[in-house]
C-alpha cells in the first residue's frame, strides 16, 4: 500500500504542474496575439517606406547613400543578439545562441574585430557561461519593445556606421515567417542590402507612373529615408523576435501540458493497479488465515 501512497503524491504534483503549464500556455497565447497585432501595424509603416522608395526610383535617381555602400574591407563589426528575458520557451533561445556561437567562430576565423551586444537575460547568462565577453547588454526589451527604445540603438548604429567606426551590423534573432514557422537567423542589416523590406517586386509597386513633385529634392528625401528604412528594419527584428518568443513558449507549454496529461493518466492507472493488488493480497491473506484456522 506504501507504493500507492507514493503514486498519489506524484499524481498530485503532476496535476499541479499541468495547471501551471496550462496557464502559461494561455498567457503566451494572449501575449502572442498582442505582439502579432503590433507586428502587423508596424508592417504598414515599412510598406509605406518602400512605396516612397519606389516613387523615388521613378524619379531616375542614383541610389547612393553611406548606409547602402558596402565597405571593401570589414574591420569592425557589431553582432546584436536578441534573446528572451524569460525561459521555458522550448528551443527558442538555444537556436539563436547556437547560431551566435557559429557566427562568432566565423568572425574569429576571418579575423574581424567585433563587439557583442546582447539583449535578454537568457543570452547574457549563456554567453557569460561560455566565457565570451559581452560589450553591452540590455534587458529592458520585454515582449513589446517600443520604437523609441529600439530607435536609441538604431541612431547609434547609424552614427557609428557613417563615421566609419563600424563596417557591418549583424543581428542574430528569430525571424517570423508564418505562425507555424520561425527560424533563427543571423542577418546583416548594415550595409543595407535593399531598401524594400519585402520582396523586390514590392518596391516596384509604388512606381506606377504618377508624376510626383519632390520637396525638397529626390536626393535629399533619399538621404532621410535610408536611415528611416534601416530603423524600421531594426525595429522589425525586435518585433519578430518578440512574436517568435511567444509562439515558442506557446508551443512548449502546450507540449508540456499534453505530457502532463499523459503522465497523469499513466500514474492514475498504476495507482489503480496498486490499489487493486493491495485489496487482492489482503483478501488472499484473510482467506488464507481462515483456512489455517479450520
Amino acid at each position: 500500500m506504501a507504493n500507492a501512497r507514493l503514486l498519489v503524491k506524484r499524481l498530485k504534483s503532476v496535476r499541479n504542474i499541468r495547471k501551471i503549464t496550462r496557464t502559461m500556455e494561455l498567457i503566451a497565447t494572449s501575449r502572442f496575439k498582442r505582439a502579432m497585432d503590433r507586428a502587423t501595424e508596424a508592417a504598414e509603416y515599412t510598406k509605406k517606406i518602400s512605396e516612397i522608395v519606389g516613387d523615388l526610383g521613378a524619379a531616375d535617381l542614383k541610389f547612393s547613400h553611406p548606409l547602402l555602400e558596402e565597405r571593401p574591407e570589414t574591420k569592425k563589426s557589431v553582432l546584436l543578439v536578441l534573446t528572451s528575458n524569460r525561459g521555458l520557451c522550448g528551443g527558442y533561445n538555444g537556436a539563436v545562441l547556437r547560431n551566435t556561437l557559429k557566427h562568432i567562430e566565423q568572425l574569429k576565423a576571418d579575423e574581424i574585430d567585433f563587439s557583442l551586444e546582447v539583449s535578454g537575460k537568457r543570452g547574457i547568462k549563456f554567453l557569460n557561461f561560455q566565457k565570451i565577453d559581452i560589450d553591452s547588454s540590455y534587458t529592458h526589451f520585454e515582449d513589446s519593445p517600443t520604437f523609441a527604445e529600439v530607435d536609441e540603438l538604431g541612431s547609434r548604429y547609424v552614427d557609428d556606421y557613417i563615421a566609419g567606426r563600424i563596417d557591418r551590423l549583424d543581428v542574430a534573432y528569430t525571424s517570423f515567417q508564418t505562425i507555424s514557422r520561425q527560424s533563427a537567423v543571423v542577418e546583416s542589416i548594415l550595409p543595407l542590402s535593399s531598401l524594400s523590406s519585402g520582396s523586390d517586386g514590392e518596391s516596384a509597386a509604388g512606381a506606377d507612373g504618377t508624376d510626383y513633385e519632390f520637396q525638397p529634392s529626390p536626393q535629399e528625401i533619399l538621404e532621410e529615408i535610408v536611415p528611416a528604412a534601416f530603423r524600421a528594419k531594426l525595429f522589425k527584428c525586435f518585433l519578430d523576435a518578440a512574436v517568435s518568443e511567444q509562439i515558442a513558449r506557446m508551443v512548449a507549454m502546450k507540449g508540456a501540458t499534453e505530457n502532463a496529461d499523459e503522465m497523469a493518466g499513466d500514474l492514475k492507472q498504476q495507482y489503480n493497479r496498486a490499489r487493486q493488488a493491495g485489496i487482492t493480497s489482503e483478501l488472499a491473506e484473510i482467506i488464507g488465515g481462515a483456512a489455517a484456522l479450520e
Binding site: 516613387d55 508624376d211 525638397p216 528625401i221 532621410e224
Partner: peptide, 19 residues
Amino acid sequence: PMFDGSAGIYPGRAPLVGR
C-alpha cells in the same frame, strides 16, 4: 509641417513626396 514651413493640403492637390 514641412521641413521648411507649414503647408496646407486641400482635395485635388498634385502628387507630392516631401520631407
